[in-house]
């Protein structure tokens, strides 16, 4: 059984069909990219899976159970982690506290009122930070981090619940090429070690080809191709849609 199973996913906005009968799977431990030109339906597809939108038709199941209409909080509990296009962290906390919050929530310790956060699960949080190379920044304010470090922090936060699937929305957006490469290799290392599957959207093709085991290509709301990177790169239909858009400068949303 596939870890994530998407079938016949359809979504309209007014009269416009944003997504039309899209179906695919993600296997355990697999890293899958979801790409396509602007307006192809990537974001819609992603937001349907992560529960921000409800589909008009079609099904999404995770580990055999339907997750249609399930909000982010329950997805987290089921083992689905997320990172955002613009790194979302808690600006008023330190780096390690950000991770502690995820650990506390994972262990259902949010509604505790006495012992302070600084004395809870700090060791575990430091270990996670160590994995993403941020152990040295643990007690800095999160808002003072460089953007690349924020992305690492977000990764550590997303990993705190040992997710089986990580949804990453444009993980490399807004980063310089070298930072991008570092982040990609770091992410690959970490998810491989944990056996975490990843579904991500991305604009920059170097990230996609360096990172993905398999690529899904959307165009005009339909899935037009999928397969291993080399096969997708060679696909004439994909080339038709992507003519001249595979350069590194296409970073914007």
């Amino acid at each position: 059984m596939s870890l994530l199973h998407v079938a016949g996913l359809t979504k309209h906005f007014g009269g416009v069909v944003a997504l039309d009968g899209v179906g695919f799977t993600v296997e355990a431990g697999e890293v899958v990219a979801l790409i396509g030109p602007n307006g192809a339906g990537k974001s819609t597809c992603f937001n349907l899976i992560n529960g921000q939108l409800a589909p008009d038709a079609g099904g999404i199941s995770f580990d055999g159970a339907s997750i249609v209409g399930i909000g982010p909080r329950r997805l987290f509990r089921m083992g689905i982690g997320r990172t955002f296009q613009i790194a979302a962290v808690f600006q008023s906390m330190t780096v390690v506290e950000n991770v502690q919050m995820a650990l506390l929530s994972a262990n259902r310790e949010i509604f505790r009122f006495l012992r302070g956060v600084p004395r809870r699960r700090r060791g575990e949080a430091l270990a996670l930070l160590d994995r993403v190379g941020l152990a040295g920044e643990a007690d800095r304010a999160a808002r003072t981090l460089a953007y690349g470090d924020l992305k690492r922090l977000e990764l550590a936060v997303a990993l705190a619940n040992r997710p089986r699937l990580l949804l990453m929305d444009e993980p490399a957006a807004g980063m310089a090429p070298q930072e991008r490469a570092d982040l990609v290799s770091l992410t690959r290392r970490v998810v491989d070690a944990d056996g975490t599957a990843v579904l991500f959207t991305e604009h920059s093709m170097d990230v996609v080809f360096a990172f993905a085991d398999r690529i899904l290509v959307l165009a005009e709301g339909r899935l037009i191709a999928q397969g291993a990177p080399e096969a997708v790169r060679a696909d004439p239909l994909v080339q038709a849609h992507y003519l001249g858009t595979t350069t590194d400068t296409e970073d914007g949303p």
Partner: peptide
Amino acid sequence: TALFSPFGYAMRAGRDSPLRAEAIGIG
């Protein structure tokens, strides 16, 4: 005491980034 507890941190988490807070399971 409440502000230093996990609950108080969760209050700030929800203020700083509701998106992130929900994504790590904080209601």
